[in-house]
Structure formats: structure tokens, C-alpha cells
Write a protein that binds this DNA or RNA. Structure first.
Lengths: 234, 234
DNA sequence: TCGACTTTGTGAACGAGTGCACGAGGCCGC
DNA sequence: GCGGCCTCGTGCACTCGTTCACAAAGTCGA
């Protein structure tokens, strides 16, 4: 559930109020999780709490940052400077959080040389050189689905072992590299799934194990879904 | 996790090749999951497979679309037309997947009337009217973190029960509404977490000049080798 | 110094989700 | 028509994450 980064953000928020310590209960509330889980999670990083008091905000902040590898910047390259790629390049949110956009590349020679934000688009063939010279650590794939796997392969080959995929395709990276996926359409589809289900805008589905329960007399019990939520969300 | 939309995409891909049927094994391979899970997942939608043959692609496609509520469009409003909001508005990927962007709103009167893509920015106070007139089903929050909760409340109050939050903040919606979150910085932090762990905490580059800058104040405490991956990813 | 109070850290119970293995059901060649 | 073969549907065991509950440990006031 990606909790460590959420704790980090909560701690940053708390730190701004000059609060010196925070309890697992309060941190849990801010992060939207169970207090016991917070304690167990933090215990994996080490015993950084003080019983009867809580956690020292500054110290915990440092420990979480260190665990996440945020003690230094991680230069990023965006591959595929179409609509989405250009949008991401212009979005300033990355740099200010420690992920400066160091390069933009595209396979289309027509795009090379184009200025986007305050960077100039390079050709994807130059990826190995750029990666080495700029110390690029993370590659963002913003290409069409068909090109995504090839781009991921090129990124890994260029020594960039972390890939964030925005393309609507299932891709894979070799052992030793990591891959995350952001699919905006999928997120919207999940929302429409739940909304559709609340509205009961579909014919009733026979529940597994209840073979005789079909026809028009299906109980309109919205709290008894036949499809597990895990199938479409988390 | 979020498997139904992935099946949908795989099925769309298969359908383009004029393949009439598909086995759970092949579908599993395309979606990157276990074959038994595919069968179990699909069995929740009903018994749509034929033993010895597989699943009829067209029919299954329809059933999955219906379950996800994709038999009709879901108009979307984007709240917060800053860098990210404008980027999302210009990104064409939503409309073509059945989520047309019907309106853009912002709290800043200075932005109202501005043209973004082929829409004009409205004021957020007009949200209830817009929602009703345009039949808006989903709200995308692209505001700063501080405004996110307020915006979510306004969306729900305006009768928009599905919220996709891009703001880096934990927000909540009342029972009966649904919420999804996309935090780009969190995705990058997860990647840096894994990369950092593989490298044993070293920076991505050995920058000439300050090789020890971020290691100097860190007590080289051995980070616990057994942090569960679930803590920072999935 | 002592005792009441607070909050952490963690063993153990619980539950959800996953994958195996196999029976059930349908197709096809002979 | 029948037997062999293929693939679905699903009971069951297992794994792993979550939550409960409580002892350990530290603070603070008297």
C-alpha cells in the first residue's frame, strides 16, 4: 500500500508545525492506516520510538528519508515527448521533490532539438551517453503502448534500472531492475466500476454457490457485492 | 490488483488480431498473472468460458466492459488548472477511452475564462450547475495539497461520487463515494527505494567534487535487510 | 524514589488473497 | 458413438499482510 512515502509526507507536514514528537496513533490517523501497522512498519527501520513519548519527528524523518533513498537527488529521463511526455516535462512537481528531469528523449528525429520546458529533446539512440553523463537513475516511459517494451529494454541496457511506465501496456524488466506502472485510464475504469456497481446499472449476477438466485427478484443489496473488490481495486 | 482493466486491455489487443477464442493461460500471460487466478476472476462475472476451448473473445470483452461500466461514457471534470491540470486537460488519452473531459474548473477567478485545449475554465462555484447540466460522473483533483480535501468535499456535494486525486495529500470521501489516488512523487520514491536498496545506499552517480556530501552526516546504521516490500510497494 | 500513566514493540490470532491440483464438461478424431 | 484430449471451474491448503492485545519501557508529578 505504499505506506513509507505516505509516512514521509505526513512527517514533513508535522515537522512544519514545529512539533517535536508524534505518536503512532496520530501518525496513523494522518496516513489513514491502523496505529499498530504504523508501529510495526517503523519497527522494520529500527527502534526509533520512545515508549511513553512517541517518535522524534526530525529523527524519524531522516530515517524514513534515508530508507527511501531520498538523501540525494535522482535524475530522471522522460522517453516519448508526445502529449503526455511534454505534460510531465512541464509539470514542476518532480524536481521539487528530489527527482530533477535531466533529459528528454524521443525516437522521432523530427522532435529532436525541440524545446520543452527548459530542456531540448535528444534522440533515444543517445540514451546510453546521456545516462552516463547525467547520472540518470530513473526512466519514465510516456510512449505509445507498442513502443513501451522496447523503450524499457533500452533504458535497462543504458544502465537505468528503474522504470516508471505510463504507457497502457504490460511490460517487464529483467531481474535486478524495478518497474512501476501508472495507468490513468485504469484508475478511471476502477472508479466507473464502483460507481456503476452502486447504481446497480447492470443485470443481477448469479452469486457463486447460489445457482437458483437469478431472475428479477435479485435483492438490491449494494453491500453484498458478488465481485471481490480486489479484482478491480485495492 | 486492478486486474479487470488489465484483462480488458489484453482482450482488446487480442480482438484486433481476429482471434476468436483465448485460453486462460494465454490471457494470464498477457496480463502478467497466474492462469488459475484468471479463471477464478472471470468466474465471478459468470461462466463465460467453454471447457476444452477457452473464452470467446468478443463475448468476454463485452462482459468485462459491462462489469466495468464501460458501455457508456463517463464525463469528467478537472479541478485545478495549474501545470498538472492543464497537462491532463491537453492529454487526449481520457476521451478516447470513454472518459471525455466535460469541464475545467479552478478557484482562481484569474484563470476563469482561460482557454485550455478546447474548453474554457469555469469557476469552482459553478460546479453543482456544471455537474448537473453535463452529467459529470468523475472529478479529477489536480490542486495543491492544501486544497484537495475541500475540493473533494465540493465534488461529492455537487453529486460527483467518484474522485481521482492527483494532489500529494491523504484525503477522504464519505461512505458511498469512491476515491483513487495517483501520486507521481510516491511512484518515484518507491523506485528510488528499491534502487537505493540494491546499491546499498550509494548515489546514482559519483559526482566529481562532493562524493561524500550526503553520506557524511548519516550514521552508517545498517538498514534492516528485511524490510517487507509491501511497506513501499506491491 | 516511587507509582501512575503513556506509548512503543511484538507474539499470536485472524482473514484475505493466491496458487495448486483435480474433477467436470465439452470438442474432435476414429 | 466412443474414447482421448483439452481447458474451464473450484475446493483446499498455504502464504502473507493486518489487527489485536499485552508486556516492556520510559516519562512525569509528588
Amino acid at each position: 500500500m505504499v505506506r513509507l512515502p505516505v509516512y514521509l509526507r505526513s512527517l514533513l507536514e508535522v515537522a512544519e508545525t514545529k512539533t517535536a514528537t508524534i505518536s503512532s496513533e496520530r501518525l496513523a490517523e494522518m496516513a489513514g492506516v491502523n496505529a499498530a501497522k504504523v508501529r510495526k512498519d517503523l519497527s522494520y527501520l529500527g527502534s526509533y520510538g520512545t515508549r511513553g513519548v512517541g517518535y522524534d519527528v526530525e529523527y524519524l524523518l531522516f530515517q524514513v528519508s534515508r530508507e527511501l533513498g531520498l538523501t540525494h537527488d535522482w535524475p530522471v529521463v522522460i522517453v516519448g515527448i508526445g502529449n503526455l511526455g511534454a505534460a510531465l516535462a512541464n509539470y514542476g512537481g518532480f524536481t521539487e521533490r528530489g527527482f530533477p528531469i535531466a533529459a528528454l528523449v524521443d525516437a522521432d528525429h523530427g522532435k529532436v532539438g525541440e524545446r520543452v520546458g527548459d530542456l531540448v529533446v535528444s534522440h533515444i539512440d543517445d540514451l546510453p551517453d546521456l545516462a552516463r553523463e547525467l547520472g540518470i537513475a530513473i526512466g519514465i516511459v510516456a510512449t505509445p503502448a507498442a513502443a513501451a517494451q522496447d523503450v524499457a529494454d533500452r533504458l535497462v541496457a543504458a544502465g537505468i534500472p528503474s522504470v516508471l511506465n505510463f504507457a497502457p501496456a504490460v511490460i517487464s524488466v529483467p531481474e535486478g531492475a524495478s518497474l512501476r506502472k501508472v495507468d490513468l485510464a485504469v484508475e478511471l475504469q476502477i472508479l466507473s466500476f464502483y460507481q456503476q456497481r452502486r447504481n446497480g446499472g447492470r443485470p443481477p449476477i448469479v452469486a457463486p454457490g447460489d445457482p437458483h438466485l437469478d431472475g428479477a427478484d435479485a435483492p438490491r443489496a449494494p453491500s453484498a457485492p458478488t465481485v471481490p473488490a480486489s479484482l478491480a481495486g485495492d
